[in-house]
């Protein structure tokens, strides 16, 4: 995840989107390491968001259409405390499988944040202000990781993101395993992807 710019259509949600909304518990049975079953996490990503809040401001937008496995939205913009609730790593995994590159929220619940970083699933970026009301689902956005900004290309407005801080080392390494290998904490293993 060392690219400096991310572009894509945004999907907008509000505050306190919890992990049951990101991936409902009944779907947690699929094998995350079977290519066929793993795709199902993409299909059901964000399927627990109540219809009226799914794709703000209007709502009623499906994150993944019908029988698809990927979302047309590469960026999720939310409010505060994104990913609260359970420790299920299936939540950032489902978003990654659905094709999400980054989530922007004012704050994150810590386990979701940690899982996103340590598992290398996606970039959990923090906006200085709560900006979800400045985006409409379907707007095009550009995230610039050098300037720490997100620009709503549809309206032309830019917003400041916080720097990644301590997490940058692990994010740039691609997750906790790559990071631990890089600093010599664990040895390279035969079957590992290094």
């Amino acid at each position: 995840m060392s690219q400096n710019k991310i572009t894509g259509k945004v999907f907008v949600v509000g505050d306190n989107v919890d992990t049951d909304q990101i991936i409902p518990a009944k779907h947690l049975v699929y094998n995350t390491h079977s290519p066929e079953e793993r795709k199902l996490y993409g299909r059901y990503a964000m399927s627990g968001v109540p219809d009226e809040e799914s794709g703000l401001p209007k709502g009623g937008v499906k994150f993944v259409n019908g029988d698809g496995f990927e979302s047309e939205f590469k960026i999720i913009v939310g409010g505060k405390n994104f990913g609260c609730g359970s420790s299920r790593e299936h939540a950032p995994l489902a978003l990654q499988v659905a094709g999400v590159k980054a989530v922007i929220a004012q704050t994150y619940a810590r386990i979701f944040y940690r899982n996103s970083v340590d598992g290398g699933f996606l970039m959990p970026l923090e906006s200085v202000d709560n900006i979800y009301k400045s985006f409409s689902t379907g707007d095009q956005a550009l995230i610039d990781l050098e300037k720490n900004t997100i620009t709503n290309s549809t309206t032309g407005k830019s917003f400041t993101l916080r720097s990644l801080g301590d997490a940058a080392d692990i994010i740039n390494a691609g997750g906790i395993f790559s990071y631990a290998r890089k600093i010599g904490m664990i040895q390279t293993v035969a079957s590992a992807n290094v």
Partner: peptide, 14 residues
């Protein structure tokens, strides 16, 4: 405290 699968796998090994 609660953690995700990746962190738990890291603990299993280390």
């Amino acid at each position: 405290t609660g953690i995700g699968n990746t962190d738990a796998a890291f603990i299993l090994g280390t």
